Simulated scan of single mutants.
Amino acid sequence: MRVLATTAYPEAPSLSYFLEYAQQDQLKIHTLVNDPELADIIIFVDPPNPDDDFFLTKLFDHPWLKHFWYKFIVYNERDEPFTILPGLYTSLLKSQWNPKRHRPCVYLQVPNQFVGKSFSYKKDLLGSFMGSSRTHPLRKKLLSLNFSELYLEDTTNYWFFGNTKNPQAHDNQTKSQKLKYAEIMARSKFVLCPRGKSPSSFRVYEALMSGAVPVIISDEWIQPDGPNWQEFCIFVPENNIENIENIVQSSESKYEQMVQLGKMAYNEWLSPNVRFHHMIESASLILKNPRWTEQIWQNLPCKVYAKRKIFYIAKTSLKLFKNMKNIKKI
């Protein structure tokens, strides 16, 4: 397919990664173009910051979306995405998922540049989790438990993403904290991946990059297309985290087999050399489905179109509000 990748926003760092992976692509089946007329698919890369135009007004107003509604999709890696548009989403909830319009997708980039580097550490930890307790009650509960063989650390006070108000103030601290995070993961046979603000987690991919087995604790997580995730991941229901150590201990004998299957799956489906190809393959599944919603929008008078857009915004906002209420009840 001929692919045009763009954005409707002044800054979208993920677009740079997307274009970089397109250049690295080993399979060379899909190619980049610059002309929307020539493109078979137009991908709008959405910025990850949820404060940037949450209701996607800039996207709706983009002329390419209006003129080429039948071949556009979005790439969205927000923790709480606004799923009104068809596209690739890293953090879909099962309750939001429409397979004809949405495909689960891998993150374009993990935030810790030290993860997956050649650390010469022995795998002396059975399992670990380093993460913030404030992003979801499940994490708070997990970090409150006592286990003899699992390393747990609350990183709420860490500066993993730097200090946005004073970028230079905590550079050294941020680096040392990221190095510790990467070291603990490199020493771990199993990495716990509980859901946070979103059902997805960078840790799933970081664990595979670090030669560890992901232990996914997220009932709403949707597996990206391609790998047989059950072969190299452990899935634990959210209501069973008290038994997480016993579950991991019982799987230790299968660690070597699972980690090898994980490496094979990562190289075949998720690595930077094939990531662009498989993202476009997933996107093509969306294009095969009828785009009646977008077609209706384009043929309605402007005022009716605007009212319809507001209706969808209100409907999706209500769904998000209900999801937030459900989270608080957990």
Rank of each mutant, 00 (worst) to 15 (best):
P10V: 08
K140A: 15
A314M: 15
W269P: 14
L19R: 00
C302W: 14
F119W: 15
E11G: 01
L93F: 15
Y266Q: 11
S200C: 01
N34M: 04
N157K: 00
A182L: 01
P272R: 03
E256G: 03
S120T: 11
E220S: 03
Q26P: 06
L27S: 02
K329E: 14
A22S: 06
S14E: 15
N326Q: 15
L88G: 05
S133G: 11
L300R: 05
V3N: 02
S120I: 13
D46E: 15
Y70F: 10
N246V: 02
S118D: 10
E206C: 13
E242M: 12
S133P: 10
L285C: 12
I73S: 00
K100T: 13
Q96N: 05
Q295S: 15
D225G: 07
N240I: 11
E245G: 08
L92P: 00
F161K: 05
F190R: 00
D219I: 04
K28I: 03
F161N: 11
D219K: 02
K263Q: 14
T31N: 12
M258R: 13
A22W: 01
N289V: 05
P237S: 11
I286D: 09
P301H: 03
D124F: 12
L108Q: 02
M324Y: 13
N299T: 09
A8I: 06
F232N: 05
L92E: 12
D225M: 06
F311Y: 14
E252K: 09
S128E: 00
I296D: 15
P167K: 10
S188A: 08
V110Y: 02
L150D: 05
S253G: 03
F160Q: 03
P290H: 09
I313G: 04
L88M: 09
Q260G: 01
S118T: 09
M130P: 01
K329R: 13
E252A: 12
P13K: 01
I280F: 08
P10N: 14
T316M: 13
S176K: 07
A12E: 04
G262T: 10
K303W: 09
K117M: 15
D35S: 10
W97M: 02
W97L: 01
V236P: 03
R203D: 00
L270P: 08
A306W: 10
N243Q: 14
S132M: 10
P199C: 11
K122W: 13
F232I: 11
A39N: 01
L56V: 07
L318K: 06
M1P: 07
L126H: 06
I313F: 03
T293L: 15
D25Q: 12
S271C: 06
L38N: 10
R103F: 05
A182P: 04
F68Q: 05
P137V: 03
S133C: 07
F276D: 04
I313Y: 08
M209F: 13
S133M: 07
T174N: 04
R2L: 12
A182T: 00
E294S: 15
N243F: 12
S218M: 02
H67T: 14
K94F: 09
Y312M: 12
L32I: 08
G131S: 07
P36W: 02
N157Y: 02
L143T: 01
M279C: 11
M209I: 13
